[in-house]
Every structure is written in C-alpha cells, then in structure tokens.
Simulated scan of single mutants.
Amino acid sequence: MFTIEHEFDATIVTLVDEGEAVLQEDVVVAAFEECVTVSQADPRSGEPVTVTLSMQQVRDLAAAMNLPEGAYRLR
C-alpha cells in the first residue's frame, strides 16, 4: 500500500509494508524541485534515517531499474 500527498513544495509518497512476513518501517519519499529524500525510521533507535538524492541520481536510479548488471553513464 502507498499514499501520495501533494504539499506546497513537494510530493510525498509513503510506502507501507504489508504482508505476513517480517514487516519493515514505512518509507517516505519526498520529491522536491531540486532533490528527492528517502526516509525510514531505524527500528533500533526509532530515529529517522534520511538519504538525499540529486535529480541526476534519481534519473540514474530509474534507468538502472531496466538494465542488466554493469556500469553505465547516461548522456
């Protein structure tokens, strides 16, 4: 399950882990004009851990989802 919210300066997508297996904490993806952040609570400390991706890194990640193993550079 996931939710999408449109804020003033960002689009927020929350991914909720569902199922019978061991569940992970929710993942929150916030897309801003200049970057994308991915946050998840650390299950040991309860504190959020955030990774910030540049827009180029996001494009590279999207392209990588459909490519075989290897090293690539997008032009």
Rank of each mutant, 00 (worst) to 15 (best):
61 L>N: 04
28 V>P: 03
15 L>T: 02
31 A>E: 05
25 E>Q: 13
1 M>D: 05
29 V>N: 01
24 Q>Y: 15
57 Q>S: 07
54 S>C: 07
30 A>G: 04
59 R>L: 12
18 E>F: 04
69 E>W: 06
75 R>L: 12
66 N>R: 11
6 H>Y: 11
27 V>S: 02
19 G>E: 05
7 E>P: 02
14 T>Q: 01
36 V>P: 00
30 A>F: 03
44 R>A: 15
57 Q>N: 04
69 E>I: 04
39 S>G: 08
75 R>G: 10
43 P>C: 09
24 Q>W: 14
13 V>D: 00
24 Q>E: 15
16 V>W: 10
52 T>N: 01
34 E>N: 15
35 C>H: 07
24 Q>V: 15
54 S>D: 05
73 R>F: 01
50 T>M: 01
7 E>K: 13
39 S>N: 06
15 L>S: 03
41 A>K: 13
38 V>Q: 06
62 A>I: 15
32 F>A: 12
53 L>K: 04
68 P>V: 13
7 E>W: 08
32 F>E: 15
5 E>N: 13
72 Y>S: 03
68 P>L: 10
53 L>N: 03
69 E>P: 00
12 I>G: 00
35 C>S: 10
60 D>L: 11
66 N>I: 04
72 Y>L: 03
70 G>W: 07
25 E>M: 11
26 D>A: 10
52 T>C: 04
27 V>A: 05
23 L>H: 04
5 E>G: 09
67 L>W: 09
51 V>D: 02
44 R>C: 10
23 L>E: 12
72 Y>M: 02
55 M>R: 14
48 P>E: 07
9 D>I: 09
62 A>S: 14
44 R>E: 15
45 S>A: 13
34 E>C: 06
63 A>K: 14
71 A>W: 06
37 T>M: 01
17 D>N: 14
75 R>F: 12
62 A>W: 09
68 P>Y: 05
19 G>A: 08
60 D>T: 14
67 L>S: 12
7 E>V: 11
27 V>D: 03
13 V>N: 02
64 A>F: 11
22 V>C: 06
68 P>E: 06
16 V>E: 06
52 T>S: 04
35 C>L: 07
53 L>T: 02
70 G>N: 09
53 L>M: 15
18 E>I: 12
3 T>V: 13
